[in-house]
Design a protein around this nucleic acid. Structure first.
Lengths: 170, 170
DNA sequence: TATGACATGTAACTAGTTACATGATTCA
DNA sequence: TGAATCATGTAACTAGTTACATGTCATA
């Protein structure tokens, strides 16, 4: 049910249309909680029915500006505080590593090298985000920084792991 | 489609029944690629139809011992070498961090502390696996070691990140 | 003989993806 | 006026979860 909470959280930060939300998902949640357009519109309709969001205003082109309700805020809070996180469960990159033994070592190495390249590129992209972001002093900024730090540490870890793994071939 | 490849990979390492496979998924893939019983049986039936696996023997209690076919091996190889990994896309723990600003700082701290505890426990469990595993010299062992190293590094990273995050409150 | 492990299958559901469909508004 | 962007909706599909249903075999 976390798509609901991701959308609810974004609306808690700022009201917006389904279209607005979709852009925010693309900008901010590509590697955290992606959502497709069809999924989002469906979820918004369900959340409205459940009283978690409300249409605060209607604009041109059938635009519906959604706003979080008090029930929505309570639901979000409940999820943050009381619902035990599942954590990441599936990782197809790591799954492949378990089966790398069926390939000749040279091909296994190529797989790990390609991984390393992907990690390096993503780390550079995150560093770029770090550079261009203006870090204020508010809460949004604080947790934004903590989230970014997670990404940076994760990618550094992946890089180092890939390098370590490649060394195992010597 | 990676459930298919996880099952195919396990059958490439050793033939077995759906029941056997289910236990292997539970033992080895809990944090990599979990599968439920109903999903596995369904997938095995589909894979047999597609010619990727074959029933090599039938045993008591309707047991069907599945074996990977040449087509199955080719499919697995193709997935390993040619299919671009998606990587991890969703992380509900990290998603929560983006919205931690809506909680009072004390509650946000509790959330991060609980995370830290989970990471620490898991790291200990992994260290225990490391201790009891007998590392041979074969390929299975090598990639098993590389996979384990991934888990160890990931959990250390998560631990350090949670500690770093908690320090941001001072 | 009862319990637990072995063993498979299916139904109903939720979540997520891809593709199609439609139309309004802005602005170059 | 044509292209890009804004804006929503739905249909058909795949993947994954939960629950139900059934029966066999070993062994205490």
């Amino acid at each position: 049910m976390s798509l609901r909470h991701a959308a609810l959280g974004l609306l808690a930060l700022e009201s917006g249309s389904g279209y607005d939300l979709l852009k925010r998902f693309e900008e901010r949640f590509t590697y955290v909680w992606p959502a497709t357009q069809s999924q989002l519109y469906g979820e918004l309709a369900k959340m409205e029915k459940a009283g978690l969001v409300r249409v605060a205003a209607e604009g041109p082109r059938g635009r519906k500006e959604y706003e979080i309700t008090e029930d929505g805020r309570a639901g979000l809070r409940h999820w943050l505080v009381d619902v035990v996180p599942e954590g990441t469960k599936r990782d197809d990159r790591l799954l492949r590593v378990f089966f790398l033994g069926i390939l000749p070592p040279e091909e296994a190495k190529i797989y790990l090298q390609q991984n390393l390249e992907v990690f390096t590129q993503r780390l550079e992209a995150l560093h770029e985000i770090e550079r261009v972001t203006e870090w204020g002093t508010g809460d949004g900024s604080k947790y934004g920084r903590i989230s970014l730090e997670f990404g940076l540490r994760q990618l550094r870890m992946l890089q180092e792991w890939a390098e370590w793994s490649l060394k195992q071939f010597d």
